[in-house]
Computed example of a mutant assay.
Amino acid sequence: MRTAVAAGLFVFIGGVYSADAGGFATFTTPPRGSPDRTRILDLMRKPMESVFGKPIEFDVRTISVSGNYAFAWLHPQRPGGVPLVINFPCEVDGRDLVIEATFVRKNNAWVFDTPADGQPGFCADDVTSWDGWLKEKGLPPQFAGRAKYLSDSD
């Protein structure tokens, strides 16, 4: 299991996120087969199957869990790594398709936290809006598998 550490103390609705003795907040990547990972992937699979049909599997780029928040960055594909065929206007083709989504745990179940329609977007070519979600929740960019916030200038 990968654990990432970021400086700071993060405050979430309902309390303060746990931190190590040095005051650094932690988040984890749930291992294969774990309940959190399985539930998140199953939730992501539903909108993908409704658009592209079954079966869908994922090449997981990042899944992070911190308290009641989660983030997933995935490459949807057919079994065996076969790219999806995209039959509508999209900025990428099936070989480069990635999907990002954020989640919140409510009543012991993961639900989409963004976007407002409850479905993840998968053709957007501008993901800087995720910076706002991360910052709003007090999460570091590493939570989303990034070295820095996308909106930070070089």
Rank of each mutant, 00 (worst) to 15 (best):
Val11Phe: 14
Ile13Pro: 09
Gly14Met: 02
Gly14Tyr: 00
Gly15Lys: 05
Tyr17Phe: 15
Ala19Leu: 15
Ala19Tyr: 14
Asp20Gln: 09
Gly22Thr: 13
Gly23Pro: 10
Phe24Asp: 13
Ala25Ser: 14
Thr26Met: 12
Thr28Gln: 08
Thr28Gly: 08
Thr29Arg: 11
Thr29Cys: 07
Pro30Met: 04
Pro31Lys: 10
Arg32Ile: 12
Ser34Glu: 01
Pro35Lys: 07
Asp36Trp: 02
Thr38Pro: 12
Thr38His: 10
Arg39Lys: 15
Arg39Leu: 10
Arg39Val: 13
Ile40Met: 09
Ile40His: 10
Leu41Asn: 04
Leu41Glu: 02
Asp42Ser: 12
Leu43Asp: 04
Met48Trp: 00
Ser50Gly: 06
Ser50Pro: 07
Val51Met: 06
Phe52Trp: 06
Gly53His: 02
Pro55Trp: 00
Pro55Leu: 06
Ile56Glu: 04
Phe58Ser: 01
Asp59His: 06
Asp59Lys: 09
Val60Met: 02
Thr62Gln: 11
Ile63Phe: 01
Val65Tyr: 04
Val65Arg: 04
Ser66Gln: 15
Gly67His: 06
Asn68Lys: 11
Asn68Asp: 14
Asn68Gly: 11
Asn68Trp: 09
Asn68Ile: 10
Phe71Asn: 14
Phe71Lys: 15
Ala72Leu: 05
Trp73His: 15
His75Val: 10
His75Ala: 07
Gln77Met: 14
Gln77Thr: 08
Gly80Asn: 04
Gly80Arg: 05
Gly80Met: 09
Gly81Gln: 00
Gly81Asn: 00
Pro83Leu: 04
Leu84Ile: 03
Asn87Gln: 10
Asn87Met: 06
Asn87Lys: 13
Glu91Leu: 12
Val92Met: 08
Asp93Ser: 09
Gly94Ala: 08
Gly94Arg: 03
Gly94Asp: 05
Arg95Ile: 07
Leu97Lys: 01
Val98Pro: 05
Ile99Met: 12
Glu100Thr: 12
Ala101Leu: 07
Ala101Trp: 06
Phe103Gly: 01
Phe103Thr: 02
Val104Thr: 09
Arg105Glu: 00
Asn107Tyr: 00
Ala109Ile: 01
Trp110Met: 04
Val111Glu: 04
Thr114Trp: 07
Thr114Gly: 08
Pro115Lys: 06
Ala116Val: 13
Asp117Pro: 11
Gly118Glu: 07
Gln119Ala: 04
Pro120Phe: 08
Phe122Ala: 05
Cys123Tyr: 01
Cys123His: 03
Cys123Val: 11
Ala124Phe: 11
Asp126Glu: 05
Asp126Gln: 05
Val127Ala: 13
Val127Leu: 12
Ser129Val: 10
Ser129Glu: 14
Asp131Met: 07
Gly132Glu: 11
Lys135Cys: 00
Lys137Thr: 13
Lys137Ser: 08
Lys137Cys: 14
Gly138Ala: 02
Gly138Gln: 03
Gly138Ile: 06
Leu139Trp: 06
